[in-house]
Write a protein that binds this DNA or RNA. Structure first.
Lengths: 248, 248
DNA sequence: CGGGGCGTTGACTGAGATCAATTATGGTGG
DNA sequence: CCACCATAATTGATCTCAGTCAACGCCCCG
């Protein structure tokens, strides 16, 4: 029934009941569509953007560079995510955003966002809720990096990514297209590349994952979930009003 | 001029221009005021709150408990913070919130929040922006825990706390009332208590901090800031329309 | 077919955890 | 006012997980 709508409407109505009117308003937010090649920064620290970016296709990460040259990835994003919704209200970017694959992106001017959220409290609330969910994921990452060992951290992160893929229909049963290098994984979990490599090997040997030719397979979801202490509650997949497909 | 308003209005108008009307509406959000003793959980994981809590006085932390009994603190809060604004839109709590001192708290019913944000887009935007700033702090913490060593982590955290205190007038020149135990610091930075102790000693020996009798003094702000790579940009103290006191 | 990025492995090092005492510190009841 | 107890801070000794350094293999792409 909602198949004529784009990924943002599909996502938001999973979070929040939307009227037909609101659905059309959201669909009209996008001003133009752009294609962005792999490994391209779309926003950089210090920028004062006038648009937000809705990811339509591909995978994107958010990261900061440390003074010593290190990098910390703070989140990954899948289609339907407004990767920098917060730039609507926070004027200067405190991090960078980069594509990890070729991406298709819809550009949403802040002035449109302003007009629409002013006129439609329901739409404002839906997008607000979306930004709050990002916050919930950030909090999880703090705990992941602060209190889990390498094995658990990677298991948890892989669970999160897989789930995000699955929700937007990018999982083929037990496997997904894997967009990350081991360096990316290290920068996301606060580990060195070498240690990521060794820990992935352990995960493979424990039969929790299979990696081959840009594909990742999770043969035993429950085992990986347990290893990473992964509880998808924080991803807020339960509530909302969308077609509540049961996951896993 | 705004002295007749409470800490929330003072904070929000620092973030966002507010009309007189909006100021009064915000002031009217609070339904009742409660006093909460030290070390008391005010919200717990799994709760489905019907109210949000505005901190009027005292210090509060947000934390999760890990399966192995460990604890990860995810944020600290000072007066003017709505410590669980997100519970307005995310129905189930994925973490706990606890007082670290005796606290005075204003309870804001979600239904009031709903009515007010629906009728006043400016108020909605101000509170939304506030939740986005929390998100910015979470992101900083990911980087702090993921990519800095013990010395830097503690320096950074102490800078953040001191700044938050200063903004709401809780700093007496170079010193503040220090509400944290070393265990708290460890749980916030992902370090063990023992190592926190040793690292604080280093910070003392480097003349970056002084701790005595529940007071913390920062004799050399610039040095501590440099040690923690602290850049207050993410706290969004610059913009807004409040009386822009220059800090430091 | 050569070079650069990424993955893999080994050897060594080190920051920070863990274990175990000991010493403040502060609150409480007699 | 003091004995007592719990909590927090401090210190030493030892261990370990993860970082660093270095080399090598693989594979894709020009």
């Amino acid at each position: 029934m909602a198949s004529s709508f784009g990924p943002l409407v599909r996502k938001l109505q999973r979070l929040y009941p939307l009227t037909d009117d609101e659905r059309h308003v959201i669909e009209g937010l996008c001003s133009r569509k752009i294609e962005v090649p792999k490994y391209t920064d779309i926003v950089q620290e210090g920028d004062k953007p006038l648009n937000s970016n809705l990811l339509l296709q591909g995978v994107i990460c958010r990261y900061v560079l440390m003074p010593d040259g290190g990098r910390q990835i703070q989140s990954f994003h899948t289609p339907g995510d407004i990767v920098d919704a917060h730039s609507f209200l926070l004027d200067v970017m405190d991090h960078n955003i980069k594509t990890l694959t070729t991406c298709s992106i819809a550009v949403i001017p802040h002035e449109k966002l302003r007009a629409v959220t002013e006129a439609h409290p329901g739409v404002a609330r839906a997008i607000w809720k979306d930004t709050l969910m990002d916050g919930a994921i950030f909090r999880q990452w703090i705990a992941n990096v602060g209190r889990r060992n390498a094995f658990q951290r990677l298991a948890h992160l892989i669970c999160e990514i897989f789930t995000k893929f699955e929700v937007v229909g990018l999982a083929d049963s037990l496997t997904i297209d894997w967009p990350l290098t081991q360096a990316d994984l290290g920068d996301a979990t606060g580990l060195s590349v070498v240690h990521v490599n060794r820990t992935l090997k352990e995960l493979r040997e424990a039969k929790l994952i299979t990696i081959g030719r840009d594909k990742l397979t999770i043969p035993n979801w429950d085992a990986l979930k347990a290893a990473g202490e992964f509880d998808p509650k924080y991803l807020q997949l339960g509530g909302g009003s969308g077609d509540a497909r049961s996951l896993h």
